[in-house]
Amino acid sequence: MIPDPESMSMVMLGGYLPPTDQYSTFIHLFPGNNAHAPWGTSGHFHFEVTVYVGGKETGRIASPICDEKGNIRVELNPAAEGPGKAVKGMFVVHSHHAREIPVEVYAFHIHKATGTYVSCNITPFIGDQLYPAVHSDQMENTLFWPGIIADQDNDPYSILVNPYDVAMGYQIHLITPEGETVHGESLKLRPKQSIEHSICGMFERYEADIRKRNGRYSFCVSSQYKLVTYFMLKNKPHQVIAMMDHLHNFCLA
């Protein structure tokens, strides 16, 4: 059944695609996940994913349509890589949902060698119909992560995704346990590109103390407009992503 466009809304989300030779990445959408109230099967849900590698579009996937009782799973690696290629990049999701009911979307990254599952929210970067101003209301162009984990088994990274068509300026700031702020360089991220920053590498003079006082440092990313930003931990012994979660604004909504 073709949904009535008048009854649909759309939200744009962005995500990070880790190296395709190491990870299988898929999106699994369960539209019922944002039921603010009991509702039936009148809504329609679908999404399009566009995958970018090195800033260039490498593939588009249009999902099937389902209602609140259904689910949609889409594999991303085939849209990212040509035969025999191993790449990493980013993706943008245009998520179409029943009016005023946006859906939480998760990506899964399965480490091929060990079978380790890592789930990660795909985060909106433009307001939606239910919360039209929420993503700009809270100064989300400055996003925060308290508690940088860094020890002998874990290395911390900041991942940034620029889902826009223009380059975006940004700056990463380290906040010491005492509240002092150390400013990283002002940088630019090209359109439709992602980047991993090693936090210890970016703030080399602080690395020993970041590790010694494991968890006591924080960081934030300020940018021209809201970027999709994640904190990522890599488990060193297995070279596996151990967690990846979105930064959040300083205060609660």
């Binding site: 699994h28 603010h36 939480e104």
Partner: peptide, 25 residues
């Protein structure tokens, strides 16, 4: 943390979603 592996996420007041699916078969 178990001393070797650590993972992290943020506080959640309540999900605001009374019916959710663990997104995995």
């Amino acid at each position: 943390t178990n001393g070797v592996s650590s993972c992290s996420t943020h506080e959640v007041n309540d999900s605001g979603r009374p019916s959710v699916v663990l997104p995995l078969f």
